[in-house]
Design a protein around this nucleic acid. Structure first.
Length: 431
RNA sequence: GUGGGAUUAGCGUAGUUGGUUAACGCGCCAGUUUGUGGCACUGGAGAUCACCGGUUCGAAUCCGGUAUUCCACCCCA
């Protein structure tokens, strides 16, 4: 076999055998989001490049080197969304959703694209579930949003996830902190890595989580943002912690969480798993009070986060969490001979119309092979239809899990009223 | 973008001093006489040994490059 091409690097196919796992996770996300009052928002996969440049931030790695950007035939620069927040914020502004009452609570479940070097848990096309809440600066909202993530993880039965939170201040206090950082790190200029030297002027906060051992050593004693928070930020952070405590959510304060997207302010957090290697952040987000304004809108304090579906599935796989298999075929009808095949097809259609899954042979197999197939697809019941059955108006139905058989009448009534539940009744209890 | 490992049928693997039709398990297909799956048995299909090039009389096996994938860094979900 020589297939002409393969899937693009860093992309994944979700095959029929596997898709139920995705659907299970997605359904729980949708349900929990609904319980918390969030409604789905769907925005286009691509946007004008400037939206991300502006929203996510020019200095970020995501914008500088990871975007799928191209020119259209019309000559405009468009970009495949590298994350979900910018597009959602754009839509909120474009449709003036602020007029429909605040806060605006939305969630998305979509693909995102980043041109990165792939490895397990890091794909070029990946999927995120994300939460967006616009128009509230209250710390309750911070806790609410984290609580939603937490209850999704609980329903997915994911174990050993650590919540780490931090506050990275606001335009009022961060400049002072940045100055303090510059002053501190300047003393060690000759020992810092090239990357850190570059960032020292533009984005000194990023030096704090540098993984280069020598830098890391220096960063240990760097001033903490928590000592530089303005009164408002500090009080906000305190209240967020209180609300988390009230919700019974455990967390660890990690001053090293700074996040790589420029729009974050005040609260930032991550849920981290140690089960899947170095790409362990399964959910990350925080507050972005300045984003909407940055995009040309009104001052609209907001917050949100995104979870990586592939990573969650990896963790679940790793922890051996069982995902319930979907309902299989209720009845398989094996037909013998042309006349019986037609009848089988007719009955199958009737059952389908009653809302149940039924199947019959569509490849021309023999009886034995049809039974094997019925077994393979996990049919709950099977029935054999041949000349004898058609003559006598009587067919045997077999319970595929127990092997028991029972007889059932064919005929006019049969096709009209037949349901698999009737068969089940004949067997007494089923399940 | 940096560094390292891997690459043999759909999947998991075996295959070293380089030597005839590349092996095994699972899966798939078909049979095991009279019309019934899960077990067993028999048979069958399926691999240009990732790709390209080099060394050699001869390469799955050695060398180089490319691709993909995994691990770490980086980044982030």
């Amino acid at each position: 076999m020589s297939v002409i091409t393969k899937k693009i690097k860093g992309t994944e196919d979700v095959l029929p055998k596997q898709s139920y796992r995705w659907q299970f996770v997605e359904n729980i996300m949708r349900e929990e989001a609904a319980n918390f009052g969030f409604k789905e928002i769907r925005t286009p996969v691509f946007e004008h490049t400037e939206l991300f440049a502006r929203g996510v931030g020019q200095t970020t790695d995501v914008v500088q080197k990871e975007m799928y950007t191209f020119d259209t035939k019309g000559g405009e620069s468009v970009t495949l969304r590298p994350e979900g927040t910018a597009g959602a914020a754009r839509a909120v502004l474009e449709h003036a959703l602020t007029n429909e009452g605040l806060p605006i609570k939305a969630y998305y479940l979509t693909s995102c694209y980043r041109y990165e070097k792939p490895q397990a848990g890091r794909l070029r096309e990946f999927h995120q579930f994300g939460i967006e809440e616009y128009g509230t600066s209250s710390p309750v909202a911070d806790a609410e949003v984290i609580s939603l993530a937490s209850s999704i993880f609980k329903r997915l039965q994911i174990q050993n996830l650590h919540l780490e939170i931090n506050s990275i201040g606001c335009p009022c206090c961060r400049p002072k902190y940045n100055e303090a950082l510059k002053e501190y790190f300047s003393k060690y200029k000759d020992k810092l890595c090239g990357n850190c030297l570059n960032r020292l002027e533009k984005n000194p906060m990023r030096l704090i989580d540098c993984k280069v051992p020598s830098c890391n050593e220096i960063a240990k004693d760097a001033p903490s943002i928590l000592d530089y928070l303005c009164e408002e930020c500090e009080s906000h952070f305190e209240q967020v912690k209180n609300y988390l405590a009230v919700s019974g959510i455990k967390y660890k304060i990690n001053p090293a969480i700074v996040r790589g997207l420029d729009y974050y302010t005040k609260t930032v957090f991550e849920f981290v798993s140690d089960a899947i290697g170095s790409q362990g952040t399964v959910c990350g987000g925080g507050r972005y009070d300045g984003l909407v304004e940055e995009l040309g809108g009104p001052s609209l304090p907001s917050l949100g986060y995104a979870m990586g579906i592939e990573r969650l599935l990896m963790v679940m796989d790793n922890q051996g969490i069982e995902i319930p298999k979907p309902e299989s075929c209720a009845l398989y009808i094996a037909g013998l001979g042309e006349k019986a095949q037609v009848k089988a097809y007719e009955i199958v259609n009737t059952i389908r119309q009653s809302g149940l899954c039924a199947e019959c042979d569509v490849v021309g197999r023999g009886l034995r092979a049809q039974m094997k197939y019925a077994d393979k697809i996990g049919a709950r019941f099977s029935m054999v239809l041949g000349d004898n059955e058609l003559e006598e108006n009587l067919a045997k139905v077999k319970n595929m899990t127990t092997g028991e058989t029972t007889e059932i009448e064919l005929g006019e009534k049969f096709t009209e009223k037949f349901t698999v539940l009737q068969i089940a009744e004949k067997f007494g209890n089923m399940e």
